[in-house]
Amino acid sequence: MNLSICHRLRDFFISTSIIISVVFSTAVFAENSAKLAPDFSLPGVDNSQINLADYRGKVVLVDFWASWCTPCIRSFPWMDEMVEKYGEQGFEIIAINMDQEAILAKKFLTRYPNKLTIAFDPQGVVAEQYEIMGLPNSFILNKQGEIVYKHVGFRLSELDKYEAEILSLLP
């Protein structure tokens, strides 16, 4: 194999591994390089309105999910536990449903009851602003409303890490 082909193959594998590591990385922001989370106002359960600006001063996990997403099903009990554990310390979760048909989300919520703040984004407008790369996709915001951590997927093996990230932002 000639040297130029070897170099091109090496460059291809380096580029591919960089792309894969970005797509599948979990914590992508350090607190000192955080950027302000896109603001949103979405319909919630029982005709309520969920405004991200109302959560300023709290640590917020914004989670994008859908009824058909198996990892989303696994994430709900953990998220519910985190709100129960840290809610009094100023931690909130806004779980944004991506189903285009509201009935699918309602069936899911009946089957998996929780204490989360649920919002609906059936057109994916907010998801597009957050540039989500899969479901579930979550963002942990500090009290200033900046995205500090981003997670694509939900891995049971990383629950301690997720919780430590939350705790690092609480008093």
Rank of each mutant, 00 (worst) to 15 (best):
K35D: 06
L52M: 13
N97P: 06
I18T: 08
F64P: 00
W78E: 08
V148E: 05
L156T: 07
V62P: 05
L135R: 06
R8A: 03
S138W: 00
G57K: 11
H7K: 06
S21M: 04
N142V: 00
A37K: 01
N142F: 00
S48H: 03
F154M: 06
L3P: 08
G90V: 03
V28Q: 11
A27E: 13
S75T: 00
L167H: 07
P38I: 02
I166R: 08
L135G: 01
V59L: 04
M82V: 10
Q49K: 14
F91N: 15
M82C: 09
G124S: 10
V23H: 11
K35G: 00
S17G: 07
A30R: 09
V126I: 14
V22P: 01
V22S: 05
A53G: 12
L42R: 07
S25L: 07
I96T: 06
K143M: 01
Y86N: 12
F120R: 08
K143Y: 08
I14R: 05
Q100K: 10
E31M: 10
P71T: 01
A95Q: 06
V126T: 13
S15D: 15
S4M: 12
E81G: 13
F64M: 01
S4A: 13
V23K: 08
Q123F: 14
S41A: 10
G145Y: 04
K161T: 14
S157L: 09
M82E: 04
I14H: 03
V125S: 15
D39G: 06
A37H: 01
F13G: 09
Y55W: 04
V23N: 08
V23E: 09
E131L: 02
E88D: 15
V45R: 05
W68M: 14
F12T: 09
K150R: 14
F91R: 13
M82S: 10
Q49A: 15
L169C: 07
I93C: 04
E101A: 11
G90C: 12
P77C: 07
F40T: 07
P122W: 08
G90A: 14
I14V: 13
K58Q: 14
Y55I: 06
I20D: 08
I140Q: 02
S17D: 06
T16H: 02
R10L: 04
P43H: 02
I73M: 11
I18D: 12
G90L: 14
A66D: 08
D46R: 13
P71M: 02
I103R: 09
D80N: 15
V23T: 07
I93V: 15
E128H: 03
F12H: 08
K115A: 05
M82L: 02
V28I: 10
K107S: 15
E131M: 05
K161D: 09
F108K: 03
P136D: 11
A53N: 14
D80K: 07
F108P: 04
V60H: 03
Y55P: 09
G124N: 09
S157N: 13
Y55H: 12
R8Y: 05
S41L: 07
Q129N: 11
Y86Q: 15
Q49R: 10
N142S: 01
V60W: 06
N137A: 06
I118V: 13
